[in-house]
Write a protein that binds this DNA or RNA. Structure first.
Length: 709
RNA sequence: GCCACCGUAGCUCAAUUGGCAGAGCAGCGGUUUUGUAAACCGCAGGUUGCGGGUUCGAGUCCCGCCGGUGGCUCCA
């Protein structure tokens, strides 16, 4: 007996061995026609699947654009149809992996011929044929051994690899057609829609490269992306929505609104803030500065560059060499000494190896001072490293700073600190430089030079929890004020990887603190394993851009590691030295990325307090020019204002101002001159009527103080 | 860094199979004096991203580089 409990609570009984399709048919013929798949106890299954005995929760999946489970099945099936189309056009294609993803699906293939966008149409028409044939998706299973033999015979190493990774004693295949029809088939876990005619409206979106298993050392595959929807109408709505989102793209709006420029001659990923972008950034900085002072931070200023040895101590150099701009003024001697240091460290032995000694001899040949000191082979590793560091400290190499923490740490260390001084909170809009991979740079969201609204907190272990919570509070407050409320919060913890430094005990403490803070924050958060920084776990605020890519903005990071590397201290109440804990935090993250996201969030139409130009005074004709000038002078005393007294028609002046997303237009014609008023028009076309300049200014002042969005 | 695509005036885009580089907007000059999202006339604007090659002839074909876009990888 199978008891099927429907979402409305009704229970229907069926004999053992009943299929999902039969259970659906029993509910109603209309539903049976519509059904794509079913969910049994929350697990999606084919309609052909037999239901287990006993009572099950049962839900029918029909093609609805708001049912993620239904879309997932349909898109997975669409991936099969696309793969078959590609295989029929290029029979040498080796299939790899083709899952559904958000808004669509992809299929990874190994094919020498590079599929070009011009060929999408050919693939789509082949897909249309397969859809029109309305062939059933037929599942069959083979015992693991038999399946492996079959796959080996077919000679696709990727599928063989998939099969080896698959769980269970039996492997399933899906034929797009009846069993033994000779139709196209694929090793696949399923489930699928009943037949190829049910995949709705679809479109191939793009083709991109993708490493097999995401491993950059492996060969690159082609990943063909598509999207699929229940109907043409929903597909069009999706494409339209994409189009609308692209109109908000900060890379288009930013230059158009005069906010920033990205100049290849200056360098890839190095943003130029133009006056309008700079005033916007300045306004944000003022806001953050106010918060910092309110929250007990102390502003500091430090240079954008520091000695290499500073970063050797912090661990940034040379471990992250690939993502740093090359060092400045590093001598050949220093380069060699650094290589020696790396070899010595890698040896992890209290006896110098042959390579190490040979390198030393090579360096020492040119440098008498090194020969004098010497480099005994039986010197313990720590002593050898110390000796090399001593030599390196005399070298004049500099690094554009990749992070601000080392400078702030040195400020902390410039005074003797008592437990009474803690927490010490040092804040700076710190500009850092990172040599990001060329393929990753884009717009303001990923740049090579950026300014963080950074701060480093030095506190006792007992203070850690409150400090972390305070940082989270500030980050949330900042996002709230600008109205960026659609974000996710990630507790970024370590995984089993080897990139992490510091003791397990400290990591456990830090992660516990991080988790405790997010748990009590009331935020919507999730755990990101392996997302931790090398020195500690963090809390990251993630926001999506106009095409759905997620970016980390604010971050709060817990760090036991750098205090040890720099041997940070404070004198405790017991008159003994203790080690402080550090918190790294940046509520906005980088101003570049934050402003980039902000441009998209507001589609360039910033709230009054942030708008680079808050008001534009426009004359109807030159007859009202003198009074308009008077209005402008008054308005400029409290607002960022522009003037348009050109000889364009008023309609065009309004159009141009609206294009620049200026919040308020003050229109001055002969009526306004006569009444000594201004006529107010908002950027979205509302006419707020006339009032005096003083009234307008007061209303604006109120809106600005409230930082209304 | 890897794969694919793209690069023509400040911006958006044209330019048969390889055959005289063009338009709209913006800019500048003039006319117009305007009432809530485009007044009219004119002028100027280019080593077609850069460098090689093929060809009688290259914006167009080939190679290299630079830059951009979408993914992948990375993101201290």
């Amino acid at each position: 007996m199978v008891k099927v409990r429907l979402p409305d609570g009704k229970v229907r009984e069926h004999p053992d061995g009943v299929t999902a399709a039969e259970a659906v048919r029993a509910i109603g013929p209309g539903l049976a026609r519509d059904a794509l798949a079913a969910q049994v106890d929350g697990r999606t299954v084919d309609l052909a699947a037999r239901l287990p005995s006993g009572e099950v929760e049962f839900r029918v999946l029909t093609p609805k654009a708001d049912d993620p489970a239904a879309l997932e099945v349909m898109r997975h099936s669409a991936a099969h149809v696309m793969a078959e189309a590609i295989c029929s056009l290029w029979p040498e294609t080796k299939l790899v992996y083709g899952p559904p993803v958000e808004n669509g699906f992809y299929y990874d293939i190994d094919l020498k011929h590079a599929i070009s966008p011009e060929e999408f149409e050919r693939i789509e028409s082949r897909m249309a044929e397969i859809v029109k044939e309305d062939r059933p998706f037929t599942r069959y299973e083979l015992p693991r051994g038999e399946a492996m033999t079959k796959l080996e015979r077919e000679g696709n190493p990727y599928k063989l690899d998939n099969a080896e990774r698959a769980e269970g004693d039996a492997l399933s295949f899906y034929v797009t057609g009846t069993r033994d029809s000779g139709c196209w088939e694929d090793l696949c876990r399923g489930p699928h829609v009943p037949s190829s005619g049910r995949i709705g409206a679809y479109k191939i979106m793009q083709v991109a490269g993708a490493y097999h298993h995401g491993d950059a050392s492996k060969a690159m595959l082609q990943r063909v992306y598509g999207t699929a929807w229940p109907s043409k109408k929903e597909l069009d709505a999706y494409l339209n929505q994409l189009e609308e989102a692209r109109k908000r793209d900060h890379r288009r709006l930013g230059p158009e609104l005069g906010l920033f420029a990205l100049d290849p001659l200056v360098g890839s990923g190095l943003a130029l803030w133009k006056p309008k972008g700079a005033i916007l950034r300045h306004t944000l900085e003022v806001f953050i500065r106010e918060e910092l002072l309110r929250r007990g931070y102390q502003p500091v200023y430090t240079p954008h560059i520091g000695k290499l040895d500073l970063y050797r101590t912090s661990g940034h150099f040379p471990y992250y060499k690939d993502s740093q701009f090359p060092p400045l003024y590093e001598s050949e001697r220093a380069r060699l000494l650094n290589a020696l240091w790396e070899i010595a460290r890698a040896s992890n032995s209290d006896r110098a190896g042959a390579e190490e000694l040979a390198l030393f001899s090579r360096i020492a040949a040119d440098h008498a001072d090194l020969r004098q000191v010497g480099y005994p082979a039986d010197l313990p590793m720590e002593d050898r490293l110390r000796r090399i560091r001593g030599w390196l400290q005399q070298e004049d190499g500099y690094l554009l700073r990749p992070m601000n923490c080392p400078h702030h740490i040195r400020i902390y260390q410039s005074d003797v600190r008592s437990y009474r001084d803690l927490p010490v909170r040092l804040a700076e809009f710190g500009t850092v430089y990172r040599y990001e991979q060329s393929g990753e740079i884009g717009g303001l969201t990923r740049v090579r030079g950026m300014t963080q609204d950074d701060a480093h907190i030095f506190c006792t272990p007992e203070q850690l929890h409150d400090e972390l919570a305070g940082c989270v509070d500030m980050a949330r407050h900042a996002l709230n004020v600008v109205g960026l409320t659609d974000y996710r919060v990630r507790a970024s913890l370590r995984d089993g990887g080897d990139k992490y430094v510091g003791s397990k005990e400290n990591w456990d403490l830090a992660e516990a603190a991080i988790l405790d803070v997010v748990q009590h924050s009331g935020m919507n958060w999730f755990v990101g394993r392996g997302e931790a920084a090398f020195y500690g776990p963090k809390i990251d605020f993630l926001v999506k851009d106009c095409i759905g890519r997620e970016w980390q903005l604010g971050t709060v990071q817990c760090d036991y590691n750098l205090p040890e590397r720099f041997e940070l201290k404070y004198i405790g109440a017991d008159n003994h030295e203790h080690r402080p804990v550090m918190v790294h935090r940046a509520p906005l993250g980088s101003l570049e990325r934050f402003v980039g996201i902000l441009i998209e969030h507001f589609a360039g139409a910033f709230p009054l307090w942030l708008a680079p130009v808050q008001v534009r005074v426009i004359t109807v004709s030159e007859k009202s020019r003198d009074y308009a000038r008077e209005v402008l002078r008054t308005v400029q005393k409290g607002l960022r204002a522009e003037f348009d007294d050109g000889d364009e028609r008023i309609g065009n002046k309004i159009r141009m101002a609206a294009h620049m997303k200026i919040p308020y237009l003050l229109i001055i014609g002969e009526q306004e001159v006569a009444n000594r008023t201004v006529s107010i028009r908002t950027r979205d076309g509302r006419q707020l009527g006339s009032c005096t300049v003083a009234e307008f200014m007061a209303a604006c002042a109120d809106e600005i103080v409230k930082r209304g969005v």
